[in-house]
Design a protein around this nucleic acid. Structure first.
Lengths: 364, 364
DNA sequence: GATTGGCACTCTCGACGGTAGAGTGCTAAC
DNA sequence: GTTAGCACTCTACCGTCGAGAGTGCCAATC
């Protein structure tokens, strides 16, 4: 699907002369900054290269022959190709760790309030979006396999009964119990809060640590009411398994819209539609988690046609065996990688800390 | 802040002749459809008016004198003014109830899955956005004043303790308990699940139906551990009171971006920023709930400068005394009101039903 | 042999001008 | 009151043109 930033650099990099490297780097950085094809003259002036524009021109021609630069038309400046960005990201970019001040600023926002986990996600998306000026995408971290932790049956003022299920990883899900089903299970006998409590207590005992199929196997062996509740619990566990990437938090779409290459928004529409289709992000999960670090996917490296004009900078967060989520930014291929990559990296480690020390407190 | 659709129509309407009404309606509908200033000739042809273009021209001139139409430049067609749209919405528009088929289609989507309340909101936003082709905004319905329903203290596998609080309206919030504070409250003694259960049981007894300040007054009279938990519960209730309009679900922003008047997105940016600032929607809550029905706010009728080029079609949902939320669409003033209004109305009644019959099952 | 200045060439972009077309406002006739 | 006719206005569009930026190549230079 993509090259990896930690992979062996592709063949052509090795062949690059020092000057080619300097010029390519300058072209990328200038183009990222100004969004205007960059010419030899401008390059010499702005980057104080110690050679003449003619030399730069021939170097550029070499880079173009290597497929790292391209040419909108004969008399225009050069523009990096996807491959050019790739080389830049892999071996030319001077990637600084995130500013100490920025780190503190971000950390501060997270500590600001007693946030629930969904608010963390929202905040993470917002921070990513503003600090990289791109669109940000954050998916919740979900356990691969939900396990039973604790169930509580609550009778509300208005006679509704609620099953509140705390999962093994601390997430909480809930479901209203159908009055009719309860009555069927108890053959019409009245069930009070005391009775609900005792059912819950026995289930907490019996089902501790179980996954959905394990719970389901127990159902038949239980008393009618307990069995009914266990059935519901099994359903809840199954749902928690399946809705891996249902809710995606995005922020900063306008940032991308303001980029000249997306003015008008028609192009972006396709991209956003793909992003909403959950399978796209789901595909990404195994790729990212195998790699571990930050993964950069540039333009045509993306298998998805709609994504050919954007780059993704993504990282997984969470632990391999428990909860796993995704976060990152999406922008034009002309993306400020040296800023985006450390920001995504930092936020992914930060989210890691958060879910490790404060197991997710909440979940719809 | 705005005129009301159910208000006495403003002075000028009464003065409109039948022809003026017909022409105004035709201009609005044509402009909404084509986004091009509409001329007398085109109007006669497209709407089969039984008069000549010259007559229409003079009628248009009258409407312009009344401030209902305006003129981009001398030799261009007419465009409705905000006031023109207002008259249209109040007394010219042929508003059809939502198609039976559309109703069923929408209802079907809601019944499709066992959804949690946040998923309802997301779905509502998505339906609004696609069926009006505008941007949709939905806020969660929250009780005005959160009340204590039921608390449960859970010890997780990893030693963390969780307080799960079910509010009076069925919403659930939760918070991790700080280990240190617990130990301070119990003077270091070990607390097991049994002990936690008994604390929870006594609190459930003592605090039933109380609001945050009431709980807070009780704190001092309780045992140390129970008092500590009650303190946390009070905080949770207070937060539920205050974060009325924290999370806003939006969808379909691209729809607006594709409208010619917002191409480029620079204009929309301001609008979206205002929308995120929670106070804007909060201001709207009392206005909408006082009115009850669908409220339309057109262009400059909005007090907020950034909103001068968009219209809002909003409705409250939920019950006055318990939970109250907001939903609606945002688009250019050139909005398909006859479609947007019934859709918003239908969705608001539908959401009403949902939270009435299935008290909200979940929350962030 | 690498580098550079010089130069012819190419292409875009903005300005300019002219024209077609849509639309208006007015007036005189019906 | 309505309408046809007409002069007028403004925009959008098109082609042209020159300036400017940039390239590619070559011959001269170090």
């Amino acid at each position: 699907m993509t090259r990896d930033e930690s992979n062996a650099p592709s063949r052509s990099v090795l062949d690059l002369t020092e000057r080619q490297r300097i010029v390519l780097r300058a072209v990328v950085e200038d183009y990222v900054l100004n969004a205007v094809p960059v010419g030899s003259q401008a390059l010499v002036e702005r980057y104080a290269l110690q050679v003449s524009s003619a030399t730069v021109r021939s170097t550029m021609a070499e880079l173009e022959a290597l497929g790292l630069l391209s040419h909108p038309h004969t008399s225009a400046g050069r523009v990096p190709s996807d491959l050019g960005y790739r080389i830049y990201v892999e071996s030319l970019m001077r990637e600084a760790a995130l500013d100490r001040a920025d780190q503190l600023m971000i950390r501060h926002q997270f500590s600001q309030v007693q946030l629930t986990s969904n608010e963390w996600l929202r905040l993470a998306a917002s921070i990513l979006a503003t600090s990289t000026r791109s669109a940000a995408v954050v998916t919740p971290a979900r356990a691969r396999r939900a396990r039973f932790g604790h169930v509580q049956l609550v009778e509300l003022a208005d006679q509704t009964r609620l099953a509140v299920l705390v999962l093994g990883d601390g997430n909480v899900v809930q479901r209203r119990l159908q009055r009719a089903s309860i009555e069927r299970a108890t053959v019409g006998e009245e069930t009070g809060q005391a009775e609900l409590d005792s059912v819950a207590a026995s289930l907490n005992n019996e089902l501790a640590g179980m996954s959905a199929p394990q719970v389901r196997r127990r159902v038949a062996k239980l008393q009618p009411l307990a069995g009914h509740v266990a059935e519901v619990v099994a359903q809840m566990l199954e749902e928690s398994d399946s809705i891996a990437v249902e809710e995606v938090f995005t922020d900063g779409i306008v940032n991308v819209l303001e980029q000249p290459e997306f003015a008008g928004g028609a192009k972006l529409r396709g991209v956003l539609e793909v992003l909403q289709r959950s399978d796209f992000l789901e595909q990404l999960v195994p790729v990212l988690s195998r790699r571990g670090g930050v993964t950069v996917i540039i333009g045509h490296e993306n298998v998805n046609d709609a994504m050919h004009e954007v780059s993704l900078v993504f990282a997984p967060y969470g632990t391999q065996d428990s909860a796993l989520g995704l976060l990152g930014v999406l922008g034009p291929t002309r993306m400020p990688y040296p800023r985006a990559i450390p920001t995504v990296r930092y936020l992914s480690t930060l989210m890691n800390e958060l879910i490790t020390y404060h197991p997710t407190e909440n979940h719809d």
